[in-house]
Design a protein around this nucleic acid. Structure first.
Lengths: 228, 228
DNA sequence: CACACCATAGCTGCATACAGGTTGGCAAAT
DNA sequence: ATTTGCCAACCTGTATGCAGCTATGGTGTG
């Protein structure tokens, strides 16, 4: 099991060292829902897995807590945070606005790379249609995010865009299973639209496409919660 | 010397413990420029000052590094980061957009408290006009920021607004002295305008006022850098 | 006198021991 | 049988020792 294959996230201010590796591994596990909300993590246990002492593990966990992905309580452990409905609405509303903003800071030179990434993702999505592989689906979403993130020329916006993507990604937990086919179709058309926009070199359009699909997802989650 | 008087910053996800105290104290010192860019901090030294071991100090320093306020190099120490002109432009452009966004998430119930805070700040600014007390000026700016920050009803936007405020505040380092009177006058009119907007209950206006004054500051910094 | 090399002091990164806190279960009393 | 109080196991928070790295100053040589 090669955990170090954290596919080189868009390093904004490239930090280095094994702490960052652990951080990324845990963050991906949380966002890929292999560590579902409410799960309790032990420092000693993780230290054993990564073959280090508790110290670097603690550092990684503290960064996760700072990101709002976990919550550490003395004498208990570190828990993957759940989904606070209020925070959830805030994050989504904010992400809508961030996506709309993307077009204001276009990184033109990244368009070719992004396009080729998107095309590759389309192929992989085709393969996915037969199965019901959640994790692969998540991975695909992640890579789409990274591809579009690189189209942002503004460092601050890019950081924020990424930050809240990770926070938002866990929210699908409750709806992912119920709406799997719909989301698959949605992602397919999103990829299509983005490919078209990139061929036209229109980064602003990419932002709006992303915004709309975030809104669709928001609607889906909202209706799922109505059903409660 | 009572360092624990870190005037209770707008706790978004209230973390507690002495690590956070140390973090806030150091962050304020950096943003108040008592620790100027390039300054080297030693863990042992800080540990002595706060009467703790290196461990909590290290945690605070790591959070500062994560915020982009410091940079830690092995074998050397932790250095207060300088001002990268590119990052500087990005942060300012982003902050402009964030301020414009404020009006979309108004926290109406906070208006009275904000107004009374602003009025108090006006009085304190009057006192300041005679002297040339940089630190008091900074403190005033900080409190203005906190007052307006509370007017944002969206947690994600509020966090981001705060995050980049702290990053941006250090940038004035190079211009603060040259433009002190101008900035004093600017702050006075900003307070006036905000007071007016708050009396009208118009939070959107507060955002636009803030946006404009950020833009003024940006122009000032830019022209100062032209002079190089 | 200039330059290169090396030793050394000081710093951060990591590991580990200890202290403080929380939880769950067991036992005893009602 | 139920409830209550206590204790023990486990977990995080903190302190400290050690290893690795960096910079600097002094020394030896050209």
């Amino acid at each position: 099991m090669n955990e170090s294959a954290t596919n080189e996230t868009s390093r904004t201010r490239a930090p280095r060292g094994q702490v960052t590796d652990i951080y990324r591994a845990l963050r991906d596990r949380i966002c890929l829902l292999r560590y579902p909300p409410g799960m309790l993590l032990g420092e000693h246990e993780l230290a054993e897995e990564f073959t280090v002492s508790r110290t670097p593990v603690r550092q990684a966990l503290q960064r996760l807590e700072y990101d709002g992905l976990t919550e550490t309580r003395n004498g208990v452990g570190t828990m993957v945070t759940g989904v606070d409905p209020n925070a959830f609405r805030d994050i989504y509303a904010f992400r809508l606005r961030l996506s709309e903003m993307m077009g204001e800071f276009p990184a033109e030179e990244e368009v070719p790379r992004a396009l080729s990434t998107i095309l590759a993702l389309q192929d992989r999505l085709e393969v996915l249609k037969g199965q019901r592989d959640m994790e692969a689906f998540w991975q695909l979403n992640h890579e789409l995010h990274h591809a579009t993130n690189r189209l942002i020329a503004n460092l601050a916006l890019r950081e924020t865009h990424e930050r809240y993507y990770f926070q938002a990604s866990r929210i699908w937990y409750s709806v992912i299973e119920a709406f799997f086919e719909e989301q698959l179709a949605d992602l397919a058309s999103e990829l299509n639209e983005i490919a078209g926009a990139l061929r036209a070199g229109d980064i602003r359009a990419v932002g709006y496409i992303q915004r709309n699909h975030i809104a669709f997802g928001l609607h889906r989650v909202a209706s799922a919660h109505m059903a409660d």
